[in-house]
C-alpha cells in the first residue's frame, strides 16, 4: 500500500530533486519581492525613477522570453516553420492594434493564422 502510494506520488511529481529546484529557482526568488513589499511597503513612491527602470527591465526580460519561445521553439512548436511563427505573431499584433488593443481578438487571429498556414502547407 505504501509502495503504491509512493509510486503514484513519484509518477505525479517526478524526481524529488526537481521539486527542490522548483523551490530554490522558482518559489524563493519570486516570493522574496512580495514579502519585501509587505515588510517595507509604504516608503516607496510608485512613480519614482527607480521603479520606472525596474519596470523597463522587467518588460525587456519578458520580451526576451517571448523572443526565445519564437526563435528557439519548444516541442511541437518547432514543427512550424520560422516564417509562419513570426507571421502569425505579426498578424495577431496587427489585429490587436486594429481592434483598439483587444488582446482576445489578437490572440485568436494569431492562432488562426498559424493553424491555417500549417494546414495549407499540409
Amino acid at each position: 500500500m505504501s509502495d503504491w502510494l509512493a509510486n503514484s506520488l513519484s509518477s505525479f511529481f517526478g524526481d524529488p530533486h526537481a521539486l527542490l529546484v522548483l523551490v530554490i529557482a522558482g518559489f524563493l526568488p519570486n516570493e522574496v519581492w512580495r514579502m519585501l513589499g509587505l515588510w517595507l511597503g509604504g516608503g516607496v513612491d510608485e512613480g519614482s525613477e527607480a521603479l520606472i527602470w525596474v519596470r523597463a527591465v522587467a518588460t525587456a526580460i519578458l520580451a526576451g522570453v517571448i523572443a526565445q519561445i519564437l526563435v528557439q521553439p519548444p516541442g511541437a512548436l518547432a514543427s512550424v516553420p520560422d516564417w509562419l511563427r513570426y507571421g502569425a505573431v505579426a498578424a495577431g499584433f496587427a489585429v490587436f492594434m486594429l481592434t483598439r488593443r483587444s488582446i482576445f481578438a489578437g490572440v485568436v487571429s494569431g492562432e488562426v493564422a498559424m493553424v491555417a498556414g500549417k494546414w495549407w502547407l499540409g
Partner: peptide, 14 residues
C-alpha cells in the same frame, strides 16, 4: 532570471 523578472511584484504589493 526569475528574481530579476519578479522585481515588478514589489511595487505592486507596495
Amino acid at each position: 532570471a526569475v528574481a530579476v523578472s519578479a522585481i515588478r511584484l514589489f511595487p505592486m504589493v507596495v
